[in-house]
Computed example of a mutant assay.
Amino acid sequence: MLIAMVGLPGAGKSSVAEALGRKVTAPVVSVDPIEAAMWRAGVGRDQPTGLAAYVVAEAVADGVLGMGQTVIVDAVNAAEAARGQWRLLADRHCVPVVFVEVVCSDPLVHRRRLENRSRGIEGFAEPTWEVVEGLRKEFASWTDHRLVLDTMTDMSANVATTLGFLSAAV
Rank of each mutant, 00 (worst) to 15 (best):
V24G: 02
T49F: 07
K13N: 02
N116S: 15
K23V: 03
E101S: 09
S14K: 05
L2T: 05
D32C: 04
S156T: 12
E115M: 10
P48S: 05
T161K: 15
I34Q: 08
R146W: 06
V103T: 14
D154Y: 00
K23D: 00
V16K: 02
R40T: 14
E130K: 13
R92F: 00
W39H: 15
R136H: 10
D46R: 04
W129N: 12
N77A: 04
V132L: 13
P96K: 13
E101L: 05
W86H: 09
T128R: 14
R83E: 05
L135E: 10
L135D: 01
S15F: 02
E122A: 14
N77Q: 03
V29K: 06
V159L: 05
V28D: 07
L108P: 00
A37V: 04
D32F: 05
F165L: 05
S15T: 15
R111I: 03
D62N: 11
G123E: 03
L88W: 04
T70H: 09
E115N: 09
T128W: 11
V170A: 14
A59R: 09
V132E: 12
V60R: 00
T128S: 15
L135G: 04
F99S: 03
R40A: 15
Q85F: 02
A41Y: 06
R92Q: 07
G68K: 02
C94E: 15
V24E: 02
K137V: 10
D62G: 01
V102Q: 01
G7V: 01
T128K: 13
W129Y: 13
G12E: 03
G42I: 07
G134H: 09
Q69F: 07
A11D: 01
A61D: 06
A81S: 13
W142L: 12
A160H: 03
P9Q: 06
V31D: 07
R45Y: 00
A82R: 07
A57N: 07
P33R: 01
Q69K: 13
A79K: 08
E133V: 15
V148A: 04
T153E: 12
L65W: 06
V71C: 14
G63W: 02
V71H: 12
V131T: 15
